[in-house]
Simulated assay, not measured.
Amino acid sequence: MIRKRRKITRMRGSRTVGGGCSKKRRGAGHRGGRGQAGGHKHHWTWIVKYDPKHFGKYGFKRPQKLIKRLETVNLACLDEMIPELLEKGVASEKDGMVLLDVRDLGFEKVLGSGRITRPVHLKAYEFSRSATEKIEEAGGKAEVIE
């Protein structure tokens, strides 16, 4: 039978509001578990009707490229390290120009931050534009190695 008025408005004065024994509506068991509990079992019809895309995967994710970062060094750091490198034998001096392979130090790219005070012949995989300009201004040479 269809009710004209909602049960909750009629039964406010009663102790259990039409729920039978006072223990009946306690806990989450009354509503079949908390949250999405029972989505594969006793709430399956709800899932099918109201949230049909709940399970499964949709769409495509493009695999991300692995970005290789170059180890970099600034001209200012190289300028400070040159005396030590000459002593250790990592760099050599020929006709007033210091010869240095930056890869021996574990670097791959030379950046142009700072300034260089002496002519240097540097070898590296890459040079920034400003680094090349500053090296050539000081009378040196920037050699790119493939």
Rank of each mutant, 00 (worst) to 15 (best):
R31C: 04
E80Y: 10
G39I: 02
A142D: 06
G106V: 09
T45C: 01
H40T: 13
E84S: 14
H30Q: 05
D95N: 15
D79M: 05
M97G: 00
S130W: 00
G89F: 06
K53F: 12
R62A: 14
R3A: 13
L105S: 08
R69I: 11
M97R: 15
M97V: 15
S14E: 13
K65Q: 12
Y125Q: 05
G96R: 10
E80K: 14
M97T: 15
T72N: 04
V98Q: 01
L105C: 09
K123V: 14
G59L: 07
R115V: 10
V120S: 01
K141V: 11
A142W: 02
P119R: 07
V102S: 00
L105T: 09
K24Q: 08
Y58I: 10
D95C: 02
F60Y: 15
G19E: 08
R12A: 15
Y58H: 12
K4V: 14
K53W: 06
G112F: 03
D104I: 00
A142L: 07
K94T: 10
E84Q: 12
A28N: 08
G59P: 04
P83C: 08
G29V: 04
A28T: 13
R129C: 00
K134C: 02
V144G: 00
V48F: 00
L122V: 09
F107K: 10
G139Q: 10
V17C: 03
E108C: 01
Q64K: 15
G56E: 08
L75M: 09
L66D: 07
S113D: 14
T132L: 03
G33E: 05
S92M: 07
F60A: 07
H54Y: 13
G35R: 07
G19A: 11
G112P: 06
P119D: 05
F127I: 04
E146F: 12
T9Y: 12
V98T: 15
S113P: 00
G19L: 12
L66Y: 10
